[in-house]
């Protein structure tokens, strides 16, 4: 089951006094359990920083992050993260990377192998289980990273531009897969992307950030039923609205 996330008046500064250099300034955002939220905005507006704070890698300078009502605290297997650059362990094969989480949670060998094999099929990497990351293309690496994050069956899935390195075809395939997983396993998803189209296609709500300092600029709720038609009139209207919010 997904968990709700509450971001309350969060400010983050990286040892710089300048007001404009704030990575995030007074951001408040509430995300319901099992909601799918996308964050869009230009480079440097603090998207990665926000994910890192929800994941527990960084602490806010002021304000607080609550996960299911509890302070975010240190990182853990309840929050799976897919990094901007896949960050696969280069010394582990694809399937060993996927098994990393369950193995360290003490899941028995046979069970985690079977699980990992299912995930391999899910991200369509059958036949590449025993390859090292360097032997995989950028898109394949990213798919392993998604499978690795899913292996712990986390309540919350944090995804930092996960499909940025994928070609257009794989990208739409992965979008469909992600929606399928999200509906089947019920998770809260925060999805960072550069693509307004992608955000609109996937999410319940699109959040727009602006840089220098990083702030929450706008929130657009998307009520269109899935699967969405990218060429529909409503879709294009929402696209225009978000585009205007960014520029």
């Amino acid at each position: 089951m997904g968990k709700a996330i509450a971001i309350e008046h969060v400010t983050k500064r990286f040892n710089d006094e300048d007001e404009r250099a704030l990575a995030l300034k007074d951001v408040t955002l509430h995300i319901a359990a099992n909601e799918f939220v996308s964050i869009v905005g230009r480079s440097g507006c603090g998207k990665t920083t926000l994910l890192n704070m929800i994941a527990g890698f960084l602490q806010p300078s002021s304000g607080q992050v609550l996960i299911g009502g509890e302070p975010a605290g240190s990182p853990g297997p309840d929050r799976g993260m897919v990094f901007q650059h896949a960050a696969l362990f280069p010394w582990l094969t694809a399937i060993q990377n996927i098994e990393f989480g369950p193995r360290n949670q003490g899941v028995p060998r046979k069970q985690r192998r079977a699980q990992a094999q299912d995930l391999i099929e899910l991200v369509r990497l059958g036949g590449f289980e025993r390859k090292y990351p360097r032997e995989l293309s950028g898109g394949m690496q990213q798919r392993v990273a998604i499978a690795r994050a899913l292996a712990n069956d986390p309540d919350i899935l944090l995804m930092d531009e996960p499909f940025g390195a994928l070609d257009e075809l794989t990208r739409s395939e992965m979008q469909l897969e992600l929606l399928r997983i999200w509906e089947a396993r019920k998770k809260t998803v925060i999805f960072v992307t550069h693509s307004i189209m992608e955000a609109l296609y996937l999410s319940d709500r699109v959040v727009v950030f602006s840089p220098h300092p990083g702030r929450l600029r706008a929130e657009i709720t998307v009520t269109l039923p899935r699967p969405r038609q990218r060429s529909s009139h409503e879709f294009m209207a929402l696209y225009e609205e978000i585009h205007r919010a960014i520029f």
Binding site: N52, A55, G56, G76, P77, G80, L88, F100, A149, A151
Partner: peptide, 15 residues
């Protein structure tokens, strides 16, 4: 050792 790997391992629940 890249901080990325440590982050990744932490978020996968490694001690």
């Amino acid at each position: 050792v890249s901080k990325q790997y440590v982050f990744a391992a932490q978020s996968l629940g490694a001690s």
